[in-house]
Every structure is written in structure tokens, then in C-alpha cells.
């Protein structure tokens, strides 16, 4: 909001110019007014956000949501690892690997539930944006191997 206010500044001052002669004091007064307006808008936005945060579903519901998302990932990862170990007799390696993967999946679940990371379906629509961040990660990937 503060970024945008200097962009608007010349526009409004030009409008002022057509009405009356422009003086440095006018300019300063206008800048001050814009500054004040920006501050008020910022304060109002913050207040609205606080109001929204308060209106969110009961805190306990939020807590169980995030906790269940995370724990479910770890449990499924551990369960898969255990089953694979039983089937292939590779105790304890699959369990170790899959619990770690389960932690990753749990974190992914939580981020998705909070809307920080787009879901599997929606992500494809903004593939361009995502491939940018993914290629940033891939720079780290080959690093140690190369």
C-alpha cells in the first residue's frame, strides 16, 4: 500500500495543478496526507485481519485439524514401512525410510491444510509458478552428487 502511494502521487498533484498553482508546501501537505491515508488503511487492514482470525473455527478444531494431518502422515509412513519389512524381511530399513517419508508427508499435509502449498490438483494449474520454485530446489539436488 505504501509502495503504491508514490505512484498515485503525481496523478493527484497534477489534478491539483489544474485547480491551483503547485507549491512545495502543497506537495509536502499532500505527501503527508497520503502517508496518513496509507497508515489508516494499513491499520484498518490489520484490524480486519485480527477480526478474521478471531472468527476462525474454534481453536480446538484448528488444533485437531493440524495435529491429525501431521500424525496421519507419520502413522501411514510407519505402517507402510512395517508392512514392507514384514513382507521382504528387511527389518528395520524400510521402517526407518518410510517413517522419514511419513514425516515429510505429514508436513506436506499440514502445509496443504493451511493453504500454504497448493493441493495436488490445483498445483497443476499454476505449474509455471511451481516449476520455478521446484527448479530452485533441483539446484540443490544434483549439487552433492556432482
Amino acid at each position: 500500500m505504501i509502495e503504491r502511494s508514490p505512484g498515485r502521487d503525481p496523478e493527484t498533484s497534477e489534478a491539483d495543478l489544474s485547480a491551483a498553482a503547485r507549491t512545495p508546501t502543497d506537495e509536502a501537505a499532500l505527501a503527508a496526507r497520503l502517508e496518513r491515508l496509507g497508515g489508516t488503511l494499513e491499520a484498518r487492514r490489520a484490524a480486519e485481519e485480527a477480526e478474521n482470525a478471531k472468527a476462525r473455527p474454534a481453536g480446538f478444531a484448528q488444533a485437531t485439524k493440524i495435529a491429525s494431518e501431521f500424525v496421519a502422515g507419520v502413522i501411514v509412513g510407519g505402517g507402510l514401512g512395517w508392512v514392507i519389512d514384514r513382507a521382504l524381511g528387511t527389518t528395520p530399513w524400510a521402517l526407518i525410510v518410510f517413517v522419514l517419508l511419513g514425516f515429510a508427508a505429514g508436513v506436506l499435509n499440514v502445509l496443504r491444510a493451511e493453504g500454504v502449498v497448493a493441493g495436488a490438483g490445483t498445483r497443476l494449474r499454476e505449474a509455471g509458478k511451481n516449476s520455478g520454485s521446484a527448479s530452485g530446489r533441483s539446484d540443490e539436488g544434483p549439487g552433492p552428487t556432482a
Binding site: G73, V76, F98, A104, A105, L108, N109, S138, G141, P142
Partner: peptide, 25 residues
């Protein structure tokens, strides 16, 4: 989509675990 080929096996595994964890959560 948009994940480098080297990471696809890892990411796919994580996605499958994430999918399977849905009924639990």
C-alpha cells in the same frame, strides 16, 4: 508436474503416503 526427474520417485512416494493418510486424518 514441474518436478525435476531426479526428484520424481521421492516426491511420488511422499504424495502416495500423503494420499493414504487422508482417511486417517
Amino acid at each position: 508436474k514441474g518436478v525435476p526427474a531426479a526428484l520424481i520417485p521421492l516426491v511420488t512416494l511422499i504424495e502416495i503416503i500423503s494420499f493414504l493418510s487422508r482417511p486417517i486424518s
